[in-house]
Design a protein around this nucleic acid. Structure first.
Length: 284
DNA sequence: TTGCAATGTGAAC
DNA sequence: TTCACCTTGCAAT
């Protein structure tokens, strides 16, 4: 389930399970043979994540393992005594206690420091990283005529957001996905950013993306609304097309945007810009 | 058993 | 804008 929270959680788990340990690496499937050979027998130093990209460093090696799960990548940690290899196993990393399996990833290769730097440089701020500055993303958004629903998915603008967080944050802030980036107000963007920080940290903590419960409802959504009938462990709009919106009952809509399915509530997320908070001025 | 959709990206046109 | 790629799980047959 690879959006940014998955990768950060993965980095944390790899570090806690293996950092400081001598590890063995192999690629039963063969597609990571060279890399696995270079790191086999080395001490894992640390794993780190930036957006949806994972980097794993080993002692005494300038190159890092770069992993991108893509749409289908899967990972598994286990402690079984019998370490069976099933299916197309790209990378197995293990020590005496634990093993980690990676399969289906778009990318899994050694990457030199320059290449890593260049990759990270072209990513936008990541809501899960302390040093990230939302205004860096804002500078791109405020100038763009592209719909905000598309901009959020652009990793050069914000790193780590995928189709679920896009749909959910836009719903939670009441923003029409089709609204042009340049029509968004900075306070609205900062609200979205704060909400992403909360949601994504929750995702890292729980390992789930689909348990955005009513308790995490942003206060700005207002107490005036009757509490929506949202069962716990659900999302607001993602993949709920045709089902009633938990807040207003309007059927959730779906449409393809930038080759991905977008989900939104046409009532709660108005196409026309809302009144700017406190100004009473209508902006379109 | 088959077929399709899926939380993603980048190259080719 | 379309396509290819990586793999799995679940729905339809």
């Amino acid at each position: 389930m690879p959006e940014g929270h998955t990768i950060h959680r993965l980095a944390g788990r790899l570090t806690s399970e293996f950092a400081g340990h001598v590890t063995r690496s192999s690629s039963p499937q063969g597609r990571f043979d060279m890399g696995a050979g270079a790191i086999d027998g080395r001490v894992l130093e640390v794993a780190d994540a930036w957006g949806k990209h994972l980097f794993v460093r080993f002692e005494g090696l300038a190159d890092e393992v770069h992993v991108h799960l893509g749409l289908f990548g899967r990972t598994r940690f286990a402690h079984d005594d019998v370490r069976e290899v099933k299916g197309a196993l790209r990378w197995r990393l293990e020590d005496d206690h634990t093993y980690f399996d990676l399969r289906g990833a778009t990318a899994c290769a050694l990457m030199g420091p320059d290449e890593v730097g260049a990759l990270v440089d072209r990513l936008g701020p990541d809501p899960l990283r302390e040093e990230s500055d939302p205004d860096q993303a804002w500078q791109r958004i405020r100038r763009s005529r592209a719909p905000i629903g598309g901009l959020l998915m652009d990793q050069k603008i914000v790193a780590g957001i995928g189709n679920v967080y896009r749909a959910e944050v836009l719903f939670r802030r009441g923003i029409d996905p089709f609204m042009e980036g340049r029509l968004l107000h900075r306070p609205e963007w900062l609200d979205m950013w704060s909400d992403l920080v909360v949601m994504m940290h929750e995702g890292v903590r729980t390992g789930r993306i689909d348990c955005i419960d009513t308790a995490s409802r942003p206060a700005s959504m207002g107490k005036a609304h009757a509490l929506p009938h949202q069962p716990p462990g659900r999302v607001w709009v993602y993949r709920r097309q045709g089902e009633p919106c938990f807040v207003c009952g309007t059927p959730v809509r779906t449409e393809e945007m930038a080759a991905r399915n977008l989900f939104w509530c046409p009532t709660c997320q108005r196409r026309t810009r809302r009144r700017a908070p406190g100004t009473g001025t209508r902006i379109t």
